[in-house]
Design a protein around this nucleic acid. Structure first.
Lengths: 97, 97
DNA sequence: TTGTCAGGCAAGTCGTCACTTGCCTATTGT
DNA sequence: ACAATAGGCAAGTGACGACTTGCCTGACAA
């Protein structure tokens, strides 16, 4: 679980995909490809991106819904929450003795 | 920079090292080895751990200070802050010390 | 129905990463 | 001085990950 999460974040392309989904949620595979190509000079194949999306889905960072021949990808930031809280000193409980 | 950070977090052993440093900061290499061995059943070589520490240092997640023949390793959580804030919807700055 | 568009599966290549082995340096204690 | 301790450097191996190529399925429009 945590393994999938950090593995997913380890790749720069996948991080850029997440960046793109923050800007605009619910993109299709081709939209994501186009974005990576124009925004950043990515020359990756559609299949490459598709595989990246699979990894992101495995980490539950991206969820997909199918509609007809389209498949939309939505960002899920939930898993990110636990990342920092794992290593940050137990934040000062403020008013808990 | 971000590249080093996520690469560093991608490995489970390195994450456990960070866990250990949260518990007890300023450990030496041998202490870290011992911890990984006892706490988790790690049977990794000293050199393996040493290399992991180098990666963590490259990501600035760990800082080391040398004293005589000892080298102490300190956790630095600073780089972790930017992780979540990258993808979380712009959170209200409110408490920026 | 046929062509096109969005996406998927599978195998193969290549590079990188984790880990080991072997040897070396520096500091400390007796 | 000598041995033991804490750590470092470098080359080699094996596995996994990123990416490509080639082909296939399913949905929609003419």
């Amino acid at each position: 679980m945590a393994d999938d999460l950090f593995k997913a974040l380890a790749d720069p392309t996948r991080r850029r995909i997440l960046d793109g989904l923050v800007e605009r949620d619910g993109q299709t595979l081709f939209e994501i490809c186009a974005r990576l190509s124009t925004r950043h000079g990515s020359e990756l194949t559609r299949q490459a991106i598709s595989q990246h999306l699979a990894v992101l889905e495995a980490a539950d960072l991206v969820r997909s819904r199918r509609e007809g021949r389209y498949k939309f990808h939505d960002l899920n930031t939930e898993p990110l929450e636990q990342i920092v809280t794992r290593w940050l000193r137990p934040t000062p409980p403020e008013n808990t003795a």
